[in-house]
Write a protein that binds this DNA or RNA. Structure first.
Lengths: 167, 167
DNA sequence: CTCATCTCAGGCTGACTGAGATCT
DNA sequence: CAGATCTCAGTCGGCCTGAGATGA
């Protein structure tokens, strides 16, 4: 057996938490972030991946459109695009049809970095889902998608809590 | 091109994100927190629920033990216990067998509040999982548990990234 | 005028790090 | 002495609000 002098054995979470979806999601989000962070060169690259992936998949877009697609705050997105531009991974150009907008476009260098990020992030997913069989992974992703799609469509609002008395 | 008058329709996330477990977990954790927060009277009550549930389920425990079980930072736990004590929901007592430790115990009032929290949090789960059938919910929770158990046991460490060149 | 877009400024929270005092 | 526990202080990123300037 492991002779591990175990300085601090984990200790099991209460059953009520182990069955609580919101708690499980939070634990796994935290683990995901640590894992992805460990596989990425620099921190903060998580938003970069999302933006670059969206630009490559759907072509140039305004910042507001990206914010809506990725559910990132518009204000925070300003800084992300700033960094991408500084690194030459994307460019801000005025939109001819609507001069309020910036048309954000991915560059060749951006596509290259995106491929690197893709690789690192996939490695992190592998660790994240390690204990699951391929079929289980598909089932899981399908269920998660259903939930995300549902709430994404329903908007971010707390969605009116039924006439419940606001104690 | 699209003359879309719509003020701000959601806008679909890129397919690569829609299939990315770490992204899905993050989205759902955020949604969970907003939902639970909306159902709870006061904010910050999320950690309270975890602590009270653990105390009721397994009896008195030290702060370090609670931190390990709930994966909450020891430092942050100090403030949580402070609040619980101020509200009379738990008490700190010196541990006779090990004077470094505080034995945290749930009070009668704590059990009452716990029942309230339980109710509100379950209502939030209902909204969170709304689009899923009961059988799907069970499958989902089982898969999430498998992952959380795996990573909980493996510790929180990034778990050594194989000899991979640290680019 | 109303509304959308981009930007900046600031606040809040949760997760984390580091250090010190106490005790085993 | 090493190691565990509790506490406090401070950092950092994500998420949110509000406001201003520009333009549809």
């Amino acid at each position: 057996m492991t002779i591990r002098p175990a300085p601090s054995p984990p200790g099991d979470p209460p059953e009520r938490l182990r069955r609580l979806p919101s708690w499980l999601f939070n634990r796994l989000a935290g683990r995901s972030n640590r894992l992805v962070g460990a596989h990425l060169d620099r921190p903060g690259r998580r938003a970069d991946y999302a933006v670059l992936a969206s630009l490559e998949e759907s072509g140039p877009a305004s910042q507001a459109e990206l914010a809506r697609r990725l559910a990132i705050d518009r204000g925070d997105l300003v800084g992300v695009i700033d960094r991408l531009e500084d690194d030459g991974l994307a460019v801000r150009r005025p939109d001819r049809n609507d001069r309020r907008r910036n048309a954000i476009t991915i560059t060749a260098a951006g596509r290259r970095i995106l491929a690197d990020l893709q690789h690192d992030i996939e490695a992190a997913q592998e660790e994240l889902l390690a204990p699951l069989e391929p079929a289980q992974r598909e089932t899981l992703v399908a269920l998660l998608q259903t939930l995300v799609d549902h709430h994404h469509a329903a908007g971010q609002e707390p969605e009116e809590i039924g006439g419940r008395p606001r104690r």
